[in-house]
Design a protein around this nucleic acid. Structure first.
Lengths: 123, 123
DNA sequence: CGCTTATTTAAGCAAATACTTAAATAATAA
DNA sequence: TTATTATTTAAGTATTTGCTTAAATAAGCG
């Protein structure tokens, strides 16, 4: 951790800045994990996929493509990205793959889903 | 809203899919707003900036650049993006600009910050 | 086995991102 | 006014993203 302060502003509270640095430093892996989830969810299509899986328990790529009016490869590539991040899993039933949320990894999303649903009422 | 279902899978519950479509449709603006926030927060640097502003009330670009060990233009461009989205505001004090969170727009982040802080303890 | 269906994967590409460096503003102070 | 400091803006660029189309797997069925 670099400790030098380059800001020459007189008011700069160097102690405060150093404290911020070390706080963030101790949380590095936590930030990495959260950024992973938020960057996955910070896309309109993927947020809707996650929302749908939360609502319907499980869905296949074909269903999602239908609902979102998108091509199946486009959906498949989004699912792959979410799956690679560890937020969904798949189970096969014949030719069909069913995707579902890994609840333990997506608890933060519940609050987000609730907010989406409640702001719907207002707007 | 398109209502055609292209999936030929026998098990596909068309009624369920149509219901999903119309549900998402009624929430479109809500999803748009949430995606805006999550795409802003879904970047390591910006998530840290938001976290820092939550922790310290207000900071100038120079301080943030120091804390995150990044160039001032890089930070300034992130701040601009967050400000354009309406999640932070700035006030000037002489040459210095102080940025702070627009609390009413960033309530969802509180849960995220709490999660970051608590998973720090575990890990 | 071939044929259809469900899905993934790969290749290609336009658009968006996130930096860098250098130049432009803005405010203060000599 | 010129110089200094804080910040923004602009231009350039390498990387990433998110789609498209076409080809490759995988499973079920005649």
């Amino acid at each position: 951790m670099k400790l030098e302060i380059t800001c020459t502003r007189a008011q700069a509270d160097h102690k405060q800045l150093l404290n911020c640095k070390s706080t963030l430093n101790s949380m590095e892996s936590s930030f990495k994990n959260m950024t992973k989830l938020l960057s996955i969810a910070g896309n309109d299509v993927r947020l809707k996929i996650l929302f749908l899986l939360n609502m319907e328990q499980e869905l296949c790529p074909c269903d999602i493509a239908d609902i979102l009016d998108m091509s199946i490869p486009a959906i498949s590539q989004h699912l792959r990205k979410i799956k690679d991040a560890g937020f969904i899993i798949s189970r096969r039933e014949g030719q069909t793959l069913y995707y579902s949320l890994v609840k333990s990894e997506t608890e933060v999303l519940n609050n987000i889903f609730t907010t989406i649903k409640s702001s719907k009422k207002i707007a």
